[in-house]
Amino acid sequence: MTRFLIRRTLQALVVLLLVTVIVFALLHALPGGPARAILGPRASLPQIEQFNHDQGFDQPLPVQYLSYLWHLLGGDLGQSYRLNQPVLDLLAQRIPKTLVLTCSATLLAVAVAVPLGVLQAVRRGRFTDHLLTGLSFLAYATPAFFLGLVLIILFAQTWPLLPAEAPQSAGLGGVFAGFGGLLLPICTLAAGMIAAFSRYLRSSVLDNLTEDYVRTARSKGQSERRVLVRHVLRNALIPVVTLLGMYLPALFGGTVVVESLFNYPGTGLLFWSAAQSSDFPVLLGVTLVVAAATVLGSLLADLVYALLDPRIRTVR
């Protein structure tokens, strides 16, 4: 197990390195560049050249990259041009907020999707199944920004139950204090996941229900409910866990939209505004964090997979 973890960590490092190379190259291939974005359209050419010289942008790209990497190894992600703050500080401030949002959304999604998926499988072909299937496709096909707007109109304007804006406080304490403001963003983010997971679990449970071991379980005299919970569910969850791991990048994409929509000062919003102002160090920093989270997510999925499925665990 230890060797497995070491190997996966090394793999993750290689992946992260490749991510920095690709993002770095892509950012610098963009037209305009940070000088124009920061100094404004009226800046003169000499001013821009001066800025580029100060930031080291007049050096060859590989040299710039190596210098970035060198700083990165020292734990220095650079300075945001726009906010004039170290990127590390920005991330430290924003990541916990995004984690609160994404983790709540994922927990909600799993908590709703599991019973929903099982219900659909058990009621296969009947009204409940058709209804839930229809709703799933609707939720899956609705873009997050649209769903968010609909929710705002319904629950913040028509029936003013919840605030339309997420909590703005800098600290996490404030976020939890104003958790009501997070409910709409969480629901917006969770809707697509609920649809995807419940559909997946439905077919996974259906597959498992036809397995011989389920017949054996019934032949022991268990109630149908016990068969489902004790025998089928665990086996059916195995593929869903993999899906969860793969869903992480999509989840971040969702936070970019949802955080902008509800003006929630998390990583997604940070990324969005940095992209608009070509704030390279921030973009690179966020991308790195997301890449690391993705790699970590798939590693976690593998570990949970092994926990659920003894056939993977004990392969020697």
Binding site: D212, T216, S219, K220, G221, Q222, N235, L308, D309
Partner: peptide, 19 residues
């Protein structure tokens, strides 16, 4: 089932719960 009447099925590879 499983109490007064026991049953054994054909394929032992698939008729036990793998987990």
């Amino acid at each position: 089932r499983g109490n007064e009447i026991g049953m054994v099925f054909q394929d032992p590879l698939t008729s036990l719960n793998p987990t």
